[in-house]
Amino acid sequence: MESMSETTHHGYATYWRIWGWLLGMTLLALGVGYVDAMPGGLKALLLVGITLAKVAIIGAYYMHLRSEKLDLILITFTPIVLAMILFFFMVPDAGDTATRIMTLR
């Protein structure tokens, strides 16, 4: 219901502001992706960081998670946690090329 009061009190300015942030972060990610001089590990770290930040603000503002109960918010973390477990369990199977995950391109 907080979403309703939010739109009543502030119009849709919040949504447009978030849109601006999302576009800004998209352009930032694009810039990071095409800086050839940047080490692969740093590039990967920055892109993961920007991606998670974008997902967090879409979830919090557009999907209204910030006004949901903590139980529901915690449930939405399960795919990220399980994906990380899957990722790190598969890294050793990539053998001696595993480190290339962090030094792509």
Binding site: T78, I80, L82, A83, L86, F87, T97, I101
Partner: peptide, 24 residues
């Protein structure tokens, strides 16, 4: 929300598999 969480796991599988393929 339950559907979104389960569907996100499907895409997480794709992305991890992609990372594995790319690393190898």
């Amino acid at each position: 929300w339950v559907f979104i969480v389960s569907d996100a796991l499907t895409f997480a599988g794709f992305i991890v598999a992609y990372g594995f393929m790319r690393a190898t």
